[in-house]
Design a protein around this nucleic acid. Structure first.
Lengths: 220, 220
DNA sequence: GATAGTTTCATACAACTGTTTGAATTGCAA
DNA sequence: TTGCAATTCAAACAGTTGTATGAAACTATC
């Protein structure tokens, strides 16, 4: 094991290249060239290309999930087991948004890698994502405790929409900038977080009857 | 040109295979085998694999966009140039949701293909998507006319969030079903449309000051 | 029914992919 | 130093990919 230098050089190079160019057109040869190591080193240290990708993704996922749960737990402890819904939602979408948006030069390689992972869903990553449900369930639980009057269905839809707004904004941030001709400032991350949390909160706290039939006009 | 039989057989086979297995692992050889034509036919009729994919995507995009604009125009004409925001949003997300959700066996190949296209963004499709901005601008215009007091920034964010909820729900429909243990019924498309429209409407019509600072707790 | 243009076909090509091999090198313990 | 395991390396492998080629088959026109 000695130095682990080769191993971590591969990880760093792979993350950087995937972040920049996507999974589609980055080959093992690109990675080892960038890392300055031998081609066979990847299979020696990771077993296969897929396992290399999986390791990268797992590492970053764990970090984000831990950050999310840390915020959630802190909030619930402070509120005696019940946190305000805004704070829960903030814990859910905040870490991801903060990691992936903000000024270009401040966006970490790790964050850009995770954006790629969310855009180009590649087999090894898809397998891991399926395990993320347990993590989301913890948030669903906290939301239920925060809004005990709300039905489970509404809770899940609220959770779904919160993630939707956060992830879509990240994925399509370029398009939103272009569409709005720069008027939507995606570098102001805290504003984005506030907007997402605000809308998701409204979705979860609006009068129940309106959820299914918002108005006579919009109703089927 | 004669019969066009080969050409359309390729298109049909390609759409079916891409819908079922994704772009990643469908080769030209798979397509021509499914279509019962010769390998060289693809390059003869379409020029390249990318142009085949692009043609498929453009065809389907045009159909959806036309449907959207048809609904939008009808609504604006009925309202004398100003449609209620709910109706505009419904025209924006309805056609896509209706095409891509609903009972599995009713989902057309075309719809499943478009889901794939939204999940696995492949170069030729990405190029086309960038041209879709003009289309979205028409909706932004209608929304502005419907909500003249709203700032442009709020309009664009509302548009962004509406698309976010619709697309994310389509992309992650399986996960939502699993997470909610079947409680969220994605086969009831009109309910999904109503939920998305409802939340997007709230996002666009809520008190302006709250948009940026929903509450003292959630504010930075 | 010959001719010209279009379409199909089998086949080859060139490039690239992830992975394997077995020998060379290194680092460390005895 | 010697010995042994861990690591690195160049090279080759086997498979797949999209594309190109040139001959064959077809189709319609005169």
């Amino acid at each position: 094991m000695a130095s682990d230098h080769t191993r971590s050089a591969i990880l760093a190079a792979a993350e950087r290249l995937y972040a920049d160019r996507g999974f589609g057109d980055v080959t093992l040869r690109d990675i080892v060239a960038e890392a300055g190591v031998n081609l066979a080193a990847v299979n020696y240290h990771f077993g296969s290309k897929d396992e290399l990708i999986a390791e990268l993704f797992v590492t970053r996922s764990i970090a984000t999930n831990r950050e999310r749960l840390r915020e959630l737990k802190a909030a619930e402890e402070q509120g005696g087991g019940r946190a305000p819904i805004e704070v829960i939602l903030r814990a859910l979408v905040g870490p991801t948004l903060r990691g992936c948006l903000g000024p270009e030069n401040q966006r970490s390689t790790a964050a850009r890698f995770m954006i790629r992972a969310s855009i180009e869903s590649v087999p090894p990553i898809r397998r891991i994502k399926n395990r993320e449900i347990d993590h989301l369930r913890k948030f669903a639980g906290a939301m239920r405790r925060s809004l005990p009057d709300r039905s489970d269905v509404d809770i899940y839809w609220g959770l779904n929409f919160a993630l939707a707004m956060a992830h879509h904004t990240i994925r399509e941030s370029e398009r939103l900038t272009k569409l709005s001709e720069g008027k939507c400032d995606l570098d102001d991350v805290e504003d984005v977080v506030a907007r997402v949390v605000s809308v998701a909160t409204m979705a979860l706290t609006a009068g129940r009857s309106e959820a299914k039939a918002p108005s006579k006009v919009a109703a089927r």
